[in-house]
Write a protein that binds this DNA or RNA. Structure first.
Lengths: 284, 284
DNA sequence: TTAGGGTGTTTGTTATTACCGAACATGGTA
DNA sequence: TACCATGTTCGGTAATAACAAACACCCTAA
């Protein structure tokens, strides 16, 4: 549903006009950077023009939106830049990620990202774009599908089975591509493979032609803090190369763990190569 | 007043509950990263506990705030990170600033920032922290005082006198430190010196012990797009060193202008050194 | 030029709904 | 245990958010 996946704070205690105002901001965010006019907003939110107008004016006067002339189009305002920067700065040890991602991108030539775990869901908090011409539309603060992203699978691979099943039930396992895993039993098998090899693979499971490889990092008690991942287009890395990339990613994740004075749980990295060779890559 | 400096879109057309919700976000931003409780929020906004509760719940359910236990404290939410990142990405030619700021910081050892001009006011859109242990609390999206910041003075130095006086009248020239320029005539003199030497100096005018040096950059028509500046603590750069720093900053600003295929207006940099030597630095 | 359809803005009016105060639940402390 | 501080829930009431309709202002086409 609309915004339902978070903890469902009772709907009775929500303020309609505020809810509408926030949806208005989101609507503009989706149409960025072009922005929307009052009429478009009113249609989008299914409210009267005058209501949309009043909401937009309120947001503008507080810097959450800005009016672009002519024909006033509303764009995201600079308060959001300031508040977003503030959030970025208060991410625990936020400065730590960038240097390691830079190294990872330099080594692999791929876009790399760091996500922290929010109740098992990956939230991306840092990004280093690769040198290639391909740019991925990845936003900080974005929450990816836990079952169809490398970061999500890396994080889930560290959690007990019951928690994984709970998250999958809450979130559902919607199909994103032909390769998306939508069966819980298949997914649990995949997490088991992830644990054994020490890194996760999203092989065109979230978007066609795009792969990701991720690995988790840990705090001092061995709890998973989040995951890092690299993203590329499939032609850049055929399946036989993923094994190699996986070890590089896992190695950098281990460096992050070390920076946090963390400890790898005993079962990770214990068998970087499976008994039966590299079949786990090809069988997906 | 509260948020008065922006264009005063008629107060009749604002919705109260949304206004309160946004102020609530700002209140939390000011107390970040600790966050605030419902009771603190209600006191801060001068509304009843139940109202603050409803507003906060609405913001939480949309990801603008997050609830931290115990004793639910409300913090800024990850939607703000995502929206802020989106704004950052749609800044015109946003990728251009960082490499030049990196060079500037490497060369000077100081924190450097880029601001774009929003109707003559400087809005910071990029930042590269210096290697020192001193960190300045500078936020992207923040609007600094035009009359008491190096970036502001650099931008204003490119505008006609009437516009400068209008902005000073709108904004006022509040005193921030002992050194703040609060007299319009003195300020206009300072802008004239800035034009002649090609860079602006904020010598403890915004914060005690902190100096900034800025220089404007231009588009193809010679209009000022914004300014870059470096920031440091006074002990790192006594007055005699500012002249030298100024030329480095101005040089990097010129590189930015070149990147934008811009043109320096004829009167800039025409006399990088004043007739009477370096006295302008000491007389402040 | 004029008519038309599209804006954004302004205006009352109505009933929705946001707000408050008070009651309830909870947790820590003396 | 009683107390005082929270956070949460409830119902009544009046403020106010939302709407429709009118207005002003472009454009474009006839």
């Amino acid at each position: 549903m609309a915004s339902g996946t978070q903890k469902e704070s009772d709907e009775r205690y929500r303020v309609q006009s505020v809810e509408r105002a926030l949806h208005l901001v989101e609507a503009i965010a989706e149409c960025s950077p072009d922005g929307l006019t009052v009429t478009e907003l009113s249609r989008n939110l299914k409210v009267s023009k005058s209501t949309a107008y009043a909401l937009a004016q309120t947001l503008v006067s507080n810097g959450f939106l800005r009016e672009l002339y002519p024909g006033p189009r509303y764009q995201l305002g600079l308060s959001l830049l300031r508040l977003g920067d503030l959030v970025a700065r208060q991410i625990p040890l936020g400065d730590t990620y960038r240097p390691i991602l830079l190294k990872l991108t330099e080594r692999t030539g791929l876009t790399s990202r760091a996500a922290i775990s929010e109740g098992g869901y990956p939230i991306f908090v840092e990004r280093v774009d690769g040198p290639g011409t391909v740019r991925f539309h990845t936003l900080l603060g974005h929450r990816e599908e836990p079952h169809a992203s490398a970061a999500g699978k890396a994080i889930l691979s560290t959690l007990p089975t019951e928690e994984v099943m709970q998250i999958c039930k809450d979130q559902g396992m919607p199909r994103r591509t032909r390769n998306t895993i939508t069966e819980i039993s298949v997914f649990l098998d995949d997490l088991e493979r992830t644990r054994r090899r020490g890194f996760s693979i999203d092989d065109e499971e979230d978007a066609d032609g795009v792969f990701c490889i991720g690995a988790p990092f840990f705090d001092h008690s061995g709890r998973c803090l989040g995951a890092i991942s690299v993203t590329g287009i499939k032609v850049d890395a055929p399946s036989w190369k993923m094994q190699e990339l996986g070890h590089v990613v896992a190695e950098h994740a281990a460096q992050l763990t070390a920076r946090f004075n963390g400890t790898q749980p005993p079962w990770t990295g214990s068998s970087p190569l499976r008994e039966d060779g590299h079949s786990e890559v090809e069988e997906m």
